[in-house]
Every structure is written in structure tokens, then in C-alpha cells.
Design a protein around this nucleic acid. Sequence first.
DNA 1: CTTGACAGTGAACAAGTTTTCATAGAACAT
DNA 2: ATGTTCTATGAAAACTTGTTCACTGTCAAG
Lengths: 219, 219
Amino acid sequence: MEELTKKQRAILDYMKAHVAEHTYWPSIRDIQAKFRFASTNAVFGHLQALERKGVLQRIPGAARAYKIVPEVLGDTSETVIRYEGPGDDAIQFESVKFAGSIAAGFPDYTESSGVLDSMQVPLAPSSRRRAPESFALRVRGDSMIDADINDGDTVIIEPGVPKHGDIVAALIDGETTLKRLIKQGSKVYLKAENQNYPDLIPTSSLTIQGIAKSVMKRI
Amino acid sequence: MEELTKKQRAILDYMKAHVAEHTYWPSIRDIQAKFRFASTNAVFGHLQALERKGVLQRIPGAARAYKIVPEVLGDTSETVIRYEGPGDDAIQFESVKFAGSIAAGFPDYTESSGVLDSMQVPLAPSSRRRAPESFALRVRGDSMIDADINDGDTVIIEPGVPKHGDIVAALIDGETTLKRLIKQGSKVYLKAENQNYPDLIPTSSLTIQGIAKSVMKRI
DNA sequence: CTTGACAGTGAACAAGTTTTCATAGAACAT
DNA sequence: ATGTTCTATGAAAACTTGTTCACTGTCAAG
């Protein structure tokens, strides 16, 4: 890589700074004004030099359009891969409490949960409302595999009155379980989404903590 | 804030994506070509609307020069939540920004297929350094169904250098797509997890926005 | 039925911008 | 001395781009 002259370096730096500040490139006249050139062609020459030296790429014919050539550019036959992050236009997300794990199998686990981490979860863009007190639960067991909820997944639970067919987090015998809620007339019971598990008919009381709205899986 | 129409949204997102990929803004005629408008004035009208609605700022008289007004939305509490459990070890959870939607199908705008309500991933100019931060994207299209990532799902993307086999968010042709990254020696290409979709071999440059770490599904 | 907001066509114009052409002094090596 | 390169001027050409004008169609509200 050829060495840049002072002015070339200054111009290149100015251009970079301009993009960083304004999000668009300076025109040749902008640069001319900045460096007090009497002619646009002075800038033009420098830009040609910068391109020839391989640090700047101009888009022919396009106004205010350049690309900075990365410092280390390997073999030109290979594809250049750049890594970029997201923008700063956060739309929305909500914070949910992480309430520990939930048993999707038999509710006979006695794990010292009740741990209150919290995690943040993106909210569906359609529902702009703020879900009241949603919380996340890590799933243990395999009783919901037919609903594609597996061991290790995280479910987002929203408190509320469940409808027939909703997958709910229910408190049974002091343990939270994840099951599908079935309402048949006056009868209400919980159904596992796995043939190997029997239905769970509540004896005395059934506490629904909330409805499973979404499930999060590690890829 | 006034609500944007679908086309306005699409145009704004295209512009953002264009800046993210090329580091310079598209001209009105670039946008016209992208959306197959017969007149530049169609674009002009949309740009006026976008500025009137306060999401885009045009620089008068300057070509390819705009500024994005950050979209302020209700309670975007970008707080870092700390572990409140019994221990003193503070575990920090990453904030996840919802950055729009991602195409898991062909990276194309097709008016007839109704893709116009989709959003693209807003990105800041690459010259800006930012701390690696996870973000969320809504998936549309069905090119990743074999990896169990379907239309409507939300994927959590973490910026970073992907390994062979990672599912990545990649910028191609001004559109972000979700594909599996395949590295074979010096060759790099993107593979869809759906038999009906062909492999995507990048022509010159490939921008990886991040690695899909987990997927979130609406129940 | 009318009105108004919205979205678009088609053509033309004006301004912004890059690029070319002609010219020239200074530094420097041959 | 002479040519070369770099840097610069000044003007103009050529192209890109934003903007305006006149007109058409759609759709929902009044």
C-alpha cells in the first residue's frame, strides 16, 4: 500500500469524520470548502489519488457515494465478509422476570426454584401493549414435546384468564407445571402434549399462573 | 407520531438497509428502481411524507443526504437487569433490541406477494463502532423451515464472527436474510434450510450482521 | 355524490455534483 | 536543461439528482 500524503490523509480523515457525524458523505465541494481549495479539481485529484492508493473506493457517477476500503483486505478472489451489528433503532422489547424453571413432566420435582432472574424479551410488534407482569420460565421435562416445547426451552408466561386450549402454567401441589388447559362443560383438566403422560385432573384447587404466549429455543 | 403506511415503512427500511450495506444513501432514482416506480415523483412524495411524519430528515439541496430520526417508542427501558437472588454474583442480561424483520426467503421486494409490509433491518453506517449487542428480528419467509425457523418467529441475533454451520443474518442486495453459513475451504456461501431454495453464493461482498442464537415462537 | 387524502404517472426543469479540459508552478531526478 | 510527478487553478461540460407542474385513479368519510 502506497503511503498517503499529509493532505490526502487529512482529506480522508475529514471524509470519514463527516460520514460518522452526518451519516452521509461530503460532496467534492464540501471538501473544497473545508480545505479552502480554489478549485474543485484539487479535491478531485486527491480523491483519484486516494482511490489509486487503494484506501477509498468511489462509486462512478454517483454523488456523495464512496466506500472505505478496509485496512486488511486479503486475497481479492475471496469473498469479503464484513461483520456489522444492528442499528440503534430499538423498536421495543419488554423486560420479563425469570422465575426459574417449570416442570413439563410430572409435577414431582422439588427444585429450589423461585429464583428471580430476569431477562428481556422482544415483544410482538403487533401487540404494542405492555404485557402485565409477564415472566419467563425454563422448561424441564418432555411432557409438551408434541406442542414443540422441549426440555431446556424458555416459555414466556402472561398472567390472565386462559381460554380452552391454551397452554398454561399451573400450580399443582406447590409445583408449577406446563400443560394444555382443557375445558369441557363444567369440567376442567390439564392435558400433557405427550402420549406417555396421563391427563391431570385437579383434585381440589387449580391455580393458573398464566398463559404460555411464546417459547424461546436455543439454536 | 403519525403512523407510517406500509410503503413508507418499506422505503424507509430500504434506505436504512442501503446505508448499512453501502455506507451511502440511495438516490431517489435508486429507490424508484427498487420499488419499480414509473416516476421519481412517487418516491418524492413518500420522502416528503416520511419527513412530515418525523422519521426522516432530508438535507435540503444535498444529494443522497438524509438523517434518520430515531424512532422513539413507549417504554423502551433499556436497563440492565441484575440478578437479585441470594448470591452476590451479579449476572447481567443483555438487552435485546427489536430491530425489525428478516427475510428467510428470497431477498426480494415483490409487490404482488405482499412482502411490502415487511421491515428491513435498520443499520447505522459501518463507520460507527458500537458495542456488540444482541438484537431481535422477526422472520418472514419459509426458507429455514428445516431448521424449525418459520414465518413469524423471532430470532435473537448476536453480533460476532460466525463459525461454519452457524445460522447467520446476512445483508445481501439491501436486504437482510437468514441463512446457514457454509465455509468450505476458501469458499463461503449461504444455505437455506429448505429444499426449494437454492444456495446463495455471494458475489463480491457479504455482510454478516450476527449469529442467530435462539428463536422465539408465538404459541 | 362530492370531497379530500393518498398514491401514482409523465414530463420537464433547476440545482447539485462529478468529471474533463487546458494551463501552470514547484520539487526532483535524469 | 529537460522531463516527470505532484499539486493546484479556472472554467466548462456532462451527468446525477432533487424538485416542480399538470394530470389521473382509488378509496373512504361526510
